[in-house]
Structures are given as structure tokens and as C-alpha cells.
């Protein structure tokens, strides 16, 4: 339930389709502003609106996000317990991170979440999208799929406990079908996988909703033609769905990267008690920052938390840049 993390993550998926929708609208918009650039008096007057229109949003953004971010960078060069004088450390917090096995493990966990859970989420989202495309009751289904995003992480963590603990529902069902020695789902060595499962479950609803919106815009005749040409489901996906929703997938990949790296609430909620932290075995980089600053005892290490946040942000920036590079190609007009 925490923070704008959720605000952003809840909100994010919607970005996809309208902004980069593959449909022809794009052609228009490219033309519209450019057409006006030379000498059209209406255009000239219109452009006078630019600064007053953008300025309020930009000022807010600058004052409450960019300036504090610069502050965070400054803090990351210090040792600071949150009040009182700051002690200059230079890059020491950063070199410490490189040597801290817990950070490296958290970093690895984050990458596993990013790529492992990411692959699962996207595979499931595409699967659901394809299945939902022709189903009766699709709009009901897609609304309900979105629903886990509204439920607080705390509830999910309790639910996961009741489902997967030693005498939980899953093991009872497995017992009924003859599996008497099921894995210890919530034991330390499996706990992170169970957390990933929860993340995949909630995220799938999200990305399905976006990808569906994009796929909906693909004219049905293309699929009909495909079917006629004897293409199977995979071929239809490969040659129609994928290329025609490519831009939206690119946006989804960016959003996923950002949200995956910011994931921490569900992990924190799995800790079980209100004040404690979960075992470092399941930390992500976000949780690492949180733990450094908010541990229930000990001197808060805000410098370290800030350094971790900056590293995280750099990771986001690099990945987003790479995704954009990899995904870039010509828009298909249809």
C-alpha cells in the first residue's frame, strides 16, 4: 500500500496503448504540428500557450522530484543518521555496496525478478490476451483480471501464508491427489520463488489489460486471413499479434522494468510482523534501501540508502535505454 510506488505502478499500464498505439493515429499527429510550423498565424498564437501550459507541471516536477533527487545524490556521498551533521564520505557508500554480499544478493534477486518473473508475466499476459480475444464475457474477465492490483500487499501476504504454508490449502489439495511430501513452499530456499509467484499474479492482470488494448486495435480480418492461410495459433501470434503490438510491448517492457525494480511492498509484507524485516535472502534493491533507512533498531544509514537508490535509478536508466534501442524499429502502418 505504500507510496507513489503504487500510485505509479497502478497507473502505469495505461500509458501503453494510447501513446504508442500502432493504429494510424500516429501518422496524423506527426503531420499536425509540423504542418503548422511555418508561418501559420493560428499555429503561432497556439505556440504562445506552450510555456504557460507546461510550466506549472514542470515546476511541480522540478521542485518535488528533481530537486529532492539531487539532494539524494548529495546524501549518498555522506554518512548521515537522518538528523544532525552529515559526514563526507565521497564514494565510500558506493564501494561498500560493491563489497556487501547482502547488496549483491539483493541485486541478483532484483535481476531474477526483472527477467524471470518478467518472462513469466509477459508469457502469461500474451497467453491470456490471445485466449481472451475471442471469448464470451471478455470484458468481465478482463476487469476481474485487473482486480489484484487494488488489493493491499498485506492481504496478499496473508493469503499466500494460508495458501502455501506447511498445512496450507495447496498442500491439502496436493495431499488429496496423492502428493504427500510437497515442497516446503515457504521455507527460506523457496520463499523468494513464492514471492515472485505473487508478483507475477498481480502483474499479469496489469499487462494483460494493456496488451489487450493494443491487440484489440488489430483489425480482425488479419487473423481471419491468417487462419485461412492455414496459420496455427503460434504463427498468428508471431506474424500478426507480435509485430502489430510491438510499440505497446516496448512501453510495457519499460514499465515492467521500472515497476520490477521498485518492487518491495509485497516482499516487506511477507516479513509477517509489523516492525521486522524479512530475511535478507529475499531482499530486493528497493528493500535494501528501505532496510538501510528504516530498520527498527540501529543507526539509520541514510547515506547508504541514498547510494542504493541512485544505483537503482542508474540501473533503471540503462535498462530503459537498452530496451528502447532493442525495440526500436519502423512502425507498421495498417
Amino acid at each position: 500500500m505504500t507510496a507513489s510506488t503504487v500510485a505509479a505502478s497502478t497507473a502505469d499500464p495505461a500509458v501503453g496503448s494510447p501513446s504508442e498505439s500502432p493504429a494510424g493515429a500516429r501518422g496524423h499527429n506527426a503531420a499536425a504540428p509540423r504542418g503548422g510550423r511555418d508561418g501559420n498565424p493560428f499555429r503561432a498564437r497556439q505556440r504562445r500557450l506552450y510555456i504557460p501550459f507546461v510550466a506549472p507541471a514542470f515546476v511541480l516536477y522540478l521542485a518535488f522530484l528533481i530537486v529532492p533527487l539531487a539532494g539524494t545524490f548529495w546524501i549518498s556521498l555522506h554518512k548521515w543518521p537522518g538528523s544532525g551533521p552529515m559526514q563526507w564520505e565521497g564514494t565510500r557508500n558506493y564501494t561498500y555496496l560493491l563489497h556487501d554480499p547482502v547488496f549483491l544478493h539483493s541485486f541478483r534477486n532484483t535481476l531474477v525478478l526483472l527477467f524471470g518473473a518478467g518472462a513469466a508475466t509477459f508469457a502469461l499476459s500474451f497467453g491470456l490476451t490471445m485466449l481472451l480475444r475471442d471469448m464470451v464475457g471478455r470484458s468481465t474477465a478482463r476487469s476481474i483480471i485487473f482486480f489484484p492490483n487494488i488489493v493491499p500487499a498485506l492481504v496478499l501476504s496473508i493469503l499466500w501464508g494460508f495458501l502455501f504454508q506447511a498445512d496450507g490449502l495447496v498442500n491439502k489439495i496436493l495431499g488429496l491427489i496423492g502428493v504427500h511430501h510437497p515442497p516446503a513452499w515457504l521455507a527460506q530456499n523457496h520463499l523468494y520463488s513464492m514471492i515472485l509467484l505473487g508478483v507475477v499474479w498481480t502483474s499479469t492482470g496489469f499487462y494483460t489489460t494493456i496488451i489487450m488494448a493494443a491487440v484489440d486495435r488489430i483489425p480482425p480480418y488479419l487473423y481471419e486471413d491468417c487462419a485461412l492461410a492455414g496459420a496455427n495459433a503460434w504463427q498468428r501470434f508471431r506474424h500478426v499479434t507480435l509485430p502489430l503490438s510491438w510499440d505497446v510491448i516496448g512501453i510495457c517492457a519499460v514499465l515492467w522494468t521500472i515497476n520490477a525494480i521498485k518492487t518491495f511492498e509485497f516482499v516487506l509484507a511477507m516479513a509477517g510482523s509489523s516492525s521486522g524485516l524479512p530475511t535478507p535472502e529475499v531482499w530486493t534493491v528497493s528493500l535494501y534501501a528501505y532496510a538501510s533507512a528504516f530498520a527498527s533498531s540501529g543507526v539509520p544509514q541514510y547515506g547508504l540508502a541514498a547510494a542504493d537508490s541512485i544505483v537503482t535509478l542508474v540501473l533503471v536508466a540503462v535498462l530503459v535505454f537498452l530496451i528502447r534501442r532493442v525495440m526500436r524499429r519502423d512502425t507498421i502502418e495498417f
Binding site: 528497493s286 534501501a289 537508490s309
Partner: peptide, 21 residues
């Protein structure tokens, strides 16, 4: 693009300087 980058800033990363603001 500048606005888009802001999507990646987590709340916990900026709350202390934000408190000062």
C-alpha cells in the same frame, strides 16, 4: 522524455530531501 524519467524515481529515494523542501 524528462517527465518519463521521473517515473523511475521511487518515493523512498527522495523522501528525506523532500522533507526539507
Amino acid at each position: 522524455s524528462l517527465f518519463a524519467i521521473g517515473l523511475g524515481i521511487p518515493a523512498q529515494a527522495i523522501f528525506l530531501p523532500l522533507y526539507a523542501v
